[in-house]
């Protein structure tokens, strides 16, 4: 295993997040890295995946000859519908999201901070793609999980004392899982509960701008 390998990091993060899932959870996965979580669902449990464009019961990607132009996920990729799936309009879809009916949403982030603030929808003057459904997802889901690399490409911590980019939501993040650490946002503050196998707590703290409370019985996670 190469700790700096992109695919290793992504697998590490996705696998760890999947261990947070429970039988019969309803979950929305964001585009990119979060979608990989579906590949690591623990044996013996069933999880129902929603896509905000209007389906509960998202299945795996179809083979090219089985693609249906009217069946996509929120990233525009072709999907299949599992037995028991249902389709609904966008208002119903966001009623599910905003109304607290999802157990978990997993999203990427540009920045996140120790207070559970999240920024993932714009860099003023550079990139303004819009928030899409992210603000609703982060506001409504019971558990808001951020899946991202710990540092940006320049090696700077993406887990800050205070987000500097425009927020997606204030104080809604419940869990951050990176290629270095698992950090839970609690009432007492951001708690470092687990570190990636092969790292030390000192190394994680060195690469984290936010103040972290180090848990007493710190654990390791691996792929």
């Amino acid at each position: 295993m190469d700790r700096n390998d992109k695919n290793y990091k992504r697998a590490l993060i996705a696998n760890r997040i999947a261990q947070e899932l429970h039988d019969e959870d309803f979950v929305n996965l964001g585009i990119g890295l979060p979608t990989l979580v579906a590949n690591y669902i623990p044996a013996g449990i069933t999880v129902h995946f929603q896509s905000e464009n209007g389906i509960m019961g998202v299945g795996s990607a179809p083979t090219p000859e089985n693609q249906d132009e009217d069946l996509i996920n929120a990233g525009g990729g072709h999907i299949t519908a599992l037995p028991g799936a249902c389709y609904f309009d966008s208002a119903t879809s966001f009623a599910i999201i905003r109304g607290g009916h999802l157990n978990m949403t997993v999203l990427g982030a540009l920045q996140v901070d120790g207070k559970g603030n999240l920024a993932n929808w714009m860099i003023p003057g550079k990139m303004v793609p819009g928030m899409g459904g992210a603000m609703d997802l982060v506001t409504g889901a019971k558990n808001v999980v951020v899946a991202m690399e710990h540092c940006d490409k320049h090696g700077n911590s993406k887990i800050l004392k205070d987000c500097t980019l425009p927020l997606t939501a204030k104080g809604k993040v419940t869990l951050i899982v990176t290629d270095m650490a698992l950090i839970r946002i609690t009432e007492k503050g951001a708690v470092l509960e687990e570190i990636a196998a092969g790292l030390t707590v000192e190394e994680v703290l060195e690469h984290t701008e936010a103040d972290l409370i180090v848990a007493d019985n710190i654990k390791e996670f691996d792929v």
Binding site: M135, T139, A169, K170
Partner: peptide
């Protein structure tokens, strides 16, 4: 009335 966007540019 919605809580979506509270404390943001929205």
């Amino acid at each position: 009335l919605t809580q979506t966007g509270l404390g943001t540019l929205a």
